[in-house]
Amino acid sequence: MIQHVIDEPIQMSPRRLLWRRVRGHAGLLIGSAILTVILAVAALAPFIAPHDPYHQDLLNRLAPPIWQTGGTWTHILGADQLGRDYLSRLIYGAQLSLFIGAAATLISGLIGTGLGVIAGYFGGRIDMVIMFLITARLSMPVVLVALAVAALLGSSLTIVILILGFLLWDRFAVVARSATMQLRSSDYVLAARCAGCPTWRLLVSEILPNIGDALIVVATLEMAHAILLEAALSFLGMGVQPPLPSWGLMISEGRDFLFFEPWLIMIPGAALFALVLGINLLGDGVRDVTAPDGGA
């Protein structure tokens, strides 16, 4: 990889070099393509969904998808146990998954980055305390704690987002800490400090922008993680509550018909798989492209 960089013609601007790496990275391109499609579907949900995702039509309950005998174009992906159009629920489910993933990642990103930057910059006792917090957080069984808190508080969309946000900050903290440690004594940080820049501004405007690449990679990983966990919580009945069209909830509802109507679990599961795959490919790609020598 290092060899590759040296071989590039010197007159190439960093931007063009980056673009060239992006174009040559199959995973990054595939990931972006999948994610673009799902984002577009989520954004345009009201325009492209053929039906109201909450409208029940008991005459059409468990209508088969188009590729099975008896399938019709009215319900391309069939209808669920309450006769709700499966395609429409799938489309609105994309909104839900993306929203939960983004919101939870935002919370965990703020917590983790804050802790990590502080630990990395100040070091010493502060670092020891924050490292201890990270170790403690890693020792907590995430699924179990999330399930228990959701069950006791009574789960809802907000609760799920908060639980995930407050549980998944560890990787942000670890990465922000080590990246900050590397920058702490670099010349431009020292120069800013000598110039009398207040510490908080130094952290926000000197350190933070320069650890951004690494944090974006963590953000994609954690977003994928949050989306999977939300689906698992909803699947177990402790996440998003019906009648919201969460993909995890759709799989859980389809489970009752597992033996005779397996498409009910196949469709939302495949969507979930594609979304997480897209996010992961994008994250891996960004890591490879921004840190070609395998850092971050």
């Binding site: 994928a224 999977l228 689906a231 698992a232 699947f235 995890g248 799989i251 798989f273 997480v276």
Partner: peptide, 18 residues
């Protein structure tokens, strides 16, 4: 490896059962 990381485990379990 990439595919494995994206596969929701509870969904994988149901597919195996089917």
């Amino acid at each position: 490896a990439v595919f494995g990381q994206a596969l929701p485990n509870f969904w994988f379990a149901l597919i195996l059962i089917v």
